[in-house]
């Protein structure tokens, strides 16, 4: 969905300085990480962001509060995102290893997928739309799915190609869809 309004940050992001310091107490830290995670997901969703690259966004309003003169340091932001990659963090992020593609963990550039919806959840979303619009058994191109007129206004409209491919791959594995064609002009059929 295209952002129609400005993103509203929660009050603690606006006016609570300690939010920008990762807390030394483990219990407090866990609840703080959870809050950051939810905030990042909401932010990404609002702006239809699928990837977050760390050195680049560290100065964005997400991590930096100009009026409060506080910021989440690069090191702490990395900690938050790494935590989001863990099971405890609900695997709401995934580090992208250099050279693109998936695969969790490892070193490399600080670029992360932000899973405000995980690929399997995206798959469900697409299947839901296909069923609602009675297009089961119809061959659709990937372009149609994410850039066509028919799906305009859906949340997956304009989504990242790589995420789409992963979502579809998940459906193919479950035998709920089939992907044909070569790179660039793939089509997909849902059962």
């Amino acid at each position: 969905m295209p952002p129609t309004t400005d993103f509203t940050f929660p009050t603690y992001h606006q006016s609570y300085p300690p939010f920008y310091t990762l807390q030394p107490n483990h219990q407090t830290l866990t609840s703080q990480l959870r809050k950051w995670s939810r905030l990042i997901q909401r932010y990404a969703r609002h702006h239809s962001l699928f990837k977050l690259s760390l050195p680049a966004t560290i100065d964005s309003p997400l991590f930096k509060n100009v009026s409060l003169k506080k910021r989440l340091s690069l090191q702490d932001a990395t900690k938050v995102l790494d935590w989001m990659c863990t099971d405890e963090g609900g695997r709401r992020a995934e580090k992208i290893v250099e050279g693109g593609g998936g695969g969790g963990g490892g070193g490399g550039a600080g670029v992360y997928w932000i899973w405000w919806k995980r690929p399997e959840e995206w798959g469900e979303e697409i299947v839901g739309w296909v069923e609602r619009t009675g297009q089961k058994g119809v061959v659709l191109t990937l372009y149609e799915l994410t850039a066509g007129e028919g799906s305009r206004g859906e949340e997956f409209w304009g989504m990242d190609g790589e995420v789409l491919r992963r979502a579809l791959a998940g459906l193919v594995r479950k035998g709920r869809a089939q992907v044909f064609g070569g790179e660039g002009e793939e089509g997909v059929k849902f059962f």
Partner: peptide
């Protein structure tokens, strides 16, 4: 909660976090 980015460590009530 502690704020380490202040000139001297500041300690805040978590009441504001209750959002």
């Amino acid at each position: 909660w502690v704020d380490l980015q202040a000139p001297e460590k500041e300690y805040w009530s978590p009441a504001l976090m209750n959002d």
